[in-house]
C-alpha cells in the first residue's frame, strides 16, 4: 500500500475523533481567553476587550475592584448553604424514590423533571411574582436567593443520586443482611458509602449551578449583588480584569476536585483487584 493511501486510510479512521476534538477545542477557547485575560494589563484604556500587555497585578490584587470580593463571598456562602440543603433533602428524596414503595410516582417524576425543563426566566419571574404577592417584594435578598437556588438544584441532585442508586448491585445489601446486619447497619455501612460518590457529585454540581446562576438570581435579588450580578453590572461599563482571576481560580479548584475523585476511584479499583 502506498504511503499516500495509508495516510488516507488513517485520516478516514480518525476523522470522527478529529472532528470531536475540534468541537472540544471550540468549547475550550473561551476558557483559555478567561485565563489569558487574568494576566491582561488594560492600562488606562477603556477598551477592555483586548489584550494589551502581561501583568501579575490582577493576581496580586484580586480584591482591587470595589465590591467584587464582597460579591464573591456572598456567592460562596449562598452556594454552600444552598448546596448543603439541596443535597440533603434531594438525596433523601432519591432514596425514597428508588428504595420505597408509594403511589404517585408518576406525579413525583414529573415535578422533578419540570424545573430542569423550564426556562429560567419563567421560573425566576414566577418566583418573583410569588414573593411580590406575599409581601416579600421589599425584602428580596440573601434568603430569597437561597430559596430559589435550593429549588433549582434539587432536581439535579435527585436525578444524579437516583442514577447512582439505580446502578448499585443490591446483592451487597442482601449479603450484609445475610450476615445479620440490621437495616440501620446495612444502610450506613453498605448502601450509604456506595451512594456517596453520587451524592458528592450532586453537591459539586449544585454548587456550580448556584455559584453561576444569573437569570433567576437577578430577578429575586433586590439590592443584593452576587458575583455573576457583579460581572453583569460591570459588563455595561468595562469589566475589571480581576473577574477573570476569580473565574480561573474557580475553574482550577473544580477541575482539581473532579480529577482527584477520578484518581481516587482508580486507586481504589486497583486496590480491589490487586
Amino acid at each position: 500500500m502506498s504511503p499516500l493511501a495509508r495516510a488516507g486510510r488513517w485520516v478516514r479512521g480518525h476523522l470522527v475523533l478529529g472532528l470531536g476534538v475540534l468541537v472540544l477545542a471550540y468549547m475550550f477557547v473561551p476558557i483559555a481567553v478567561v485565563v489569558l485575560m487574568s494576566f491582561n494589563d488594560p492600562g488606562k484604556s477603556k477598551n477592555v476587550y483586548a489584550f494589551r500587555g502581561f501583568t501579575l497585578h490582577n493576581w496580586e490584587h484580586p480584591c482591587g475592584p470595589a465590591g467584587m470580593c464582597h460579591a464573591v463571598g456572598l456567592s460562596v456562602s449562598i452556594g454552600l448553604l444552598a448546596t448543603l440543603v439541596a443535597t440533603i433533602i434531594g438525596s433523601m428524596a432519591a432514596f425514597g424514590l428508588v428504595r420505597h414503595e408509594f403511589s404517585g410516582r408518576g406525579l413525583a417524576n414529573t415535578i422533578i423533571f419540570l424545573p430542569m425543563a423550564s426556562p429560567e426566566i419563567v421560573m425566576g419571574s414566577s418566583l418573583l411574582a410569588l414573593f411580590v404577592s406575599t409581601g416579600f417584594g421589599g425584602r428580596l435578598g440573601f434568603w430569597t436567593i437561597f430559596v430559589a437556588h435550593v429549588m433549582f438544584c434539587l432536581s439535579f441532585v435527585i436525578v444524579t443520586v437516583r442514577a447512582r442508586l439505580a446502578g448499585l448491585d443490591d446483592n451487597l445489601e442482601q449479603a450484609a443482611m445475610d450476615l445479620y446486619a440490621d437495616e440501620r447497619q446495612t444502610f450506613w455501612r453498605v448502601t450509604f458509602p456506595l451512594a456517596l460518590p453520587g451524592i458528592l457529585g450532586a453537591a459539586l454540581l449544585s454548587f456550580s449551578l448556584s455559584f453561576d446562576d444569573f437569570i433567576i438570581t437577578n430577578l429575586n435579588a433586590g439590592q443584593t449583588t452576587t458575583f455573576p450580578m457583579f460581572v453583569w453590572g460591570a459588563a455595561q461599563r468595562g469589566v475589571p480584569m480581576q473577574v477573570n482571576v476569580i473565574g480561573t481560580v474557580m475553574f482550577v479548584i473544580a477541575i482539581a476536585i473532579v480529577l482527584g475523585g477520578e484518581l481516587n476511584n482508580r486507586r481504589r479499583a486497583r486496590a480491589l483487584v490487586g
Binding site: 472540544l24 468549547m27 475550550f28 477557547v29 473561551p30 476558557i31 481567553v33 478567561v34 485575560m37 476587550y49 483586548a50 456550580s208 455559584f211 453561576d212 444569573f214 458575583f227 455573576p228 460581572v231 453583569w232 459588563a235 469589566v239 473577574v243 477573570n244 476569580i246 473565574g247 480561573t248 474557580m250 475553574f251 473544580a254 477541575i255 473532579v258 480529577l259 477520578e262
Partner: peptide, 20 residues
C-alpha cells in the same frame, strides 16, 4: 470530564470571552 469542564467557569465570563 472535559465536556462538563466549561460548567466550572462562569457562564457570563465565557460569554464575555466571545465578545473579545
Amino acid at each position: 470530564v472535559l465536556v462538563i469542564a466549561p460548567f466550572f467557569t462562569s457562564f457570563l465570563l465565557r460569554t464575555l470571552s466571545w465578545k473579545l
